[in-house]
Every structure is written in C-alpha cells, then in structure tokens.
C-alpha cells in the first residue's frame, strides 16, 4: 500500500515532458496511474521519477482525419466511451472500454496506459492488433510511427523506449465489422482468455490475448476465413487446431489446455460477432 520514495514532475507541455523523460534516469510517464500506482503500492516497480502527463491537454484529443481515427494517449476509457467520433467511426473501442474494470478505473485509466503496460490480460493490446492500429511515439529526436505488430515487445514492455512518449493511437476509421470475446474472472474482470477479430472486405485480422507475452495473430485462421462469407460451421472449421499452435501459460485461473480451448471459443465468437456486424 505504501510507495517507495519517488520523484515527481508535472510538465505543462509535451516538450517539457520529453525533456524530463530524457533527462532523468529511471523516469517513467504517469498516465492514469491505474496500473502503475498499484504496482508501486506492491513495491513491484519503483521508478525514480514519475512524469505526470495529466496536464497535457493535447494528448486527450480524439479526432478523425480523413480515414483515420486518432486517439490521444491520455484519453481516458470513460472519454472513449463518450466520444461521438469513436461511436461513429470505430464503436468497438467504446464497447470494449466499457468492460474494463469499473467506473472509477475508467475515469482515470487511459488508452495509452492500458497498452503501454501491456499486461497480457489487458483488453486493448489484442483489440488494437485486430484493428491494425498505428502508434505515434515522440522523443526529443522527433516523431516516429510504429505498427501495432511492432509495438508490443514483451510483458510490460513496448516499443516506447526510455525518453520516449506514446502520444497517439490511430486506427482506420470505419472498417467492416469488429468483435471481441473472451472469458473474464467475474463480470468486467481480468481476462482469462480473449480474442479480437476484425473484417473488412473479406480480409480478417484476428488477435489473441492472454496466451503469450504479446498479442498473437491467428494468421492461419485469418487466411482460412479470407474471402469466405462465413457461417458458424465455417468458423469452427477454420479455428480447428488453433489451440495446438499456442503455448499459453498455466496459472491459478486456467491451465494451458483450458486456455487453448477458451481461446478457440473466443475466436469463434469474436469472428461471428464481427461477421454479423460487417453484414449488418
């Protein structure tokens, strides 16, 4: 419950934030703090300096530019749920945000925080893989973009390097149909297994959470479904054997075998949901 001593800064601009992150060893960006502060309470992490991004209004913007939906890294999950841009252009993001933890956590927790933590049980990493997102990362050296595939590196590790800041997540606006399904520990609880699926014009992207350090693309299933006007039997056939290709962890909530099975079911359900939405 009680944190170690820690330094703190609250920059007024993104430039200040970058300079603080670059200029202090062991500095870490503090977004909503709904994971980081809890990890610090367990003293499982003890950054030297927290750079509080709370005052950086420009990271809280949501907007549609042409065919792209841009979401600032500091957009809270509650804001995501209320955004008319999200509702119009990619409603799955709001739908999934609404199932993360609880109101209080969603009021503080941010999209950027959720993915930078990259806890394998988090909601957004697999979803953003399915949505083919692009991440914008800023440092004092300038801006770079990283494809979602390259963004997730390991448990609690992403492509955001020391001194860098994730500023924006971009996903294609529109799309055909999206779905996400899984099994949680209690309603709106931690995921035990999940899958996100997205289809556009017969091309599928399917990503699995909870089975590895980073979201896993189910490429074989994607290709089996490619161009097919799917019904449940097709999907089940396409998913057949997926579990055997995975090497998920065993833990107190699920054995590896159970996770394999849940993952297959999650894929079936996410795909059917996405397909239905694509056709509706």
């Amino acid at each position: 419950m009680l944190l170690r001593e820690v330094g703190y800064a609250r920059p007024a601009t993104v430039e200040e934030a970058l300079s603080l992150l670059a200029g202090n060893d062991g500095a870490r960006a503090l977004a909503g703090g709904q994971t980081l502060l809890n990890v610090m309470k367990q003293r499982a992490a003890s950054p030297e300096v927290l750079v509080d991004l709370g005052k950086l209004a420009e990271l809280r913007l949501v907007g549609v530019q042409g065919m792209t939906l841009d979401i600032g890294a500091m957009v809270t999950l509650s804001a995501l749920m209320r955004s008319s841009e999200v509702e119009v252009s990619r409603p799955i993001l709001a739908e999934v945000a609404a199932t993360v933890a609880d109101v209080q956590v969603r009021n503080r927790g941010t999209l950027g925080g959720n993915i930078c933590v990259n806890d394998p049980t988090n909601h957004f990493p697999p979803l953003l893989v399915a949505l083919d997102a692009t991440m914008t990362i800023l440092s004092e050296d300038g801006e770079r973009t990283v494809s979602v595939e390259d963004f997730f590196v390991g448990v609690f590790e992403t492509a955001v390097r020391e001194g860098e800041l994730l500023t924006r997540v971009s996903v294609p606006a529109g799309g055909g149909g999206d779905g996400m399904s899984g099994v949680t520990l209690g309603a709106h609880g931690t995921y035990i297994a999940n899958a996100a699926a997205s289809v556009d014009d017969g091309r599928w992207r399917i990503a699995l959470g909870c089975v590895a350090a980073v979201p896993v693309r189910a490429t074989l299933v994607e290709s089996r479904l490619s161009g097919v006007d799917v019904d449940e039997a097709d999907v089940r056939a396409a998913v057949e054997g997926l579990g055997e290709t995975l090497d998920p962890p065993s833990d107190v909530h699920a054995s590896a075998d159970y996770r394999r099975s849940l993952t297959e079911t999650s894929v079936v359900r996410a795909v059917l949901q996405a397909a239905e939405r694509a056709s509706g």
Partner: peptide, 29 residues
C-alpha cells in the same frame, strides 16, 4: 481502505466531480 490493489473502491471520492479511487491517485496529483 479495503485493499492494496485498487480493487475495492472503499476509498472512492470525487476528484473534480468525477468518481475515482483515492488509493490510485497521488495526493500531489
């Protein structure tokens, strides 16, 4: 305070009118 993982909500307060868990916010924030 009922937990140490931000799970229980016993510490819920309104911060600028919004419900938050005061165990997952620094006082300085």
């Amino acid at each position: 305070i009922g937990c140490d993982t931000g799970s229980c909500g016993a510490c819920t307060v309104h911060l600028d009118g919004v419900a938050v868990k005061s165990c997952a916010v620094l006082a300085v924030q």
